[in-house]
């Protein structure tokens, strides 16, 4: 039986008996997962490849719906409603729960337009409001100083680390409640990685963060809570420090000491 701690803070998301089955698969890829996600904290998901951590992350903004035939069961509660309901407005949900991907995904447009993209989707047309909010988002993403003089340039001219911060700026510009990070530094060099990690920690004042990482040190450095997953199950969820120093489950201990992975 998994050992899941109770958290003191308010919950941003509450996962209950959640199961996820990919199209055509016989067995669910995620099995009976129950976990709280603390508000204004960072929750890291770790585990060997194929353990389901990314699958779980992509359930929070219903990304799986882009590919028909996948099945959700159970409940993910967000702001008092079950977001797995078929009535859930996915467009609305995705503006509330943003996502950052493994690789920087700068759109084929200017730096400014990239950050303004989500705002424009929401119907903001007023130029001064747009530029104010773009500036604020870029400042919050620690990118403003580097790009303020070339906002009209193609975003693909930026370095990898800058592009990833641009994607973060783009995601926070629409002021989401939750941000999902899917191995955000896996394509970056160590210095850019450091920058992103610092940024993630700063961001938790405003948003609740869930981060999937392949790197245990990263989880230890940035997160408040860590969940260890294995073969589609959540084995253990604890305070990051406790989980890494005194894991309650044998599997967790074997994983963090490098016995498998």
């Amino acid at each position: 039986m998994a050992s899941i701690i109770d958290i003191k803070e308010e919950c941003a998301l509450q996962v209950r008996d959640f199961e996820f089955t990919y199209k055509g698969a016989e067995a669910p890829s995620l099995k009976k997962i129950t976990m709280p996600i603390a508000k204004n904290s960072i929750t890291a998901l770790i585990g060997p490849s194929g353990c389901g951590k990314t699958t779980l992350l992509r359930s929070f903004n219903r990304m799986h719906d882009l590919y028909p035939g996948n099945v959700y069961n159970g409940e993910i509660e967000f702001e008092g409603r079950n977001i797995l309901s078929s009535k859930e407005d996915l467009i609305q949900l995705r503006t509330q729960i943003g996502m950052i991907f493994q690789k920087p995904t700068a759109f084929p447009m200017s730096i400014f337009d990239n950050v303004a993209y989500g705002l424009r989707l929401q119907g903001i047309k007023n130029k001064s409001e747009l530029s104010d909010r773009v500036e604020k988002a870029l400042k919050d993403a620690a990118l403003w100083k580097e790009v303020s003089d070339r906002l009209k340039n193609d975003a693909n001219g930026l370095s990898g680390g800058q592009q990833q911060r641009l994607c973060i700026a783009r995601a926070i510009a629409v002021e989401p409640e939750v941000l999902l990070f899917d191995e955000p530094t896996s394509a970056l060099d160590p210095i850019s990685t450091q920058g992103i990690e610092k940024l993630v920690i700063e961001l938790k004042e405003r948003v609740s963060i869930i981060i999937v990482t392949h790197n245990m040190q990263q989880a230890a450095r940035v997160s408040d809570y860590t969940g260890f997953m294995y073969l589609g199950e959540l084995i253990e969820l604890g305070n990051t420090e406790n989980l890494f120093v005194t894991p309650k489950e044998k599997l967790t201990q074997e994983y963090i000491t490098g016995k498998f992975g």
Partner: peptide, 9 residues
């Protein structure tokens, strides 16, 4: 009509 509704239509 909101911007999102317009987009959906």
């Amino acid at each position: 009509m909101t911007a999102t509704q317009k987009r959906v239509i």
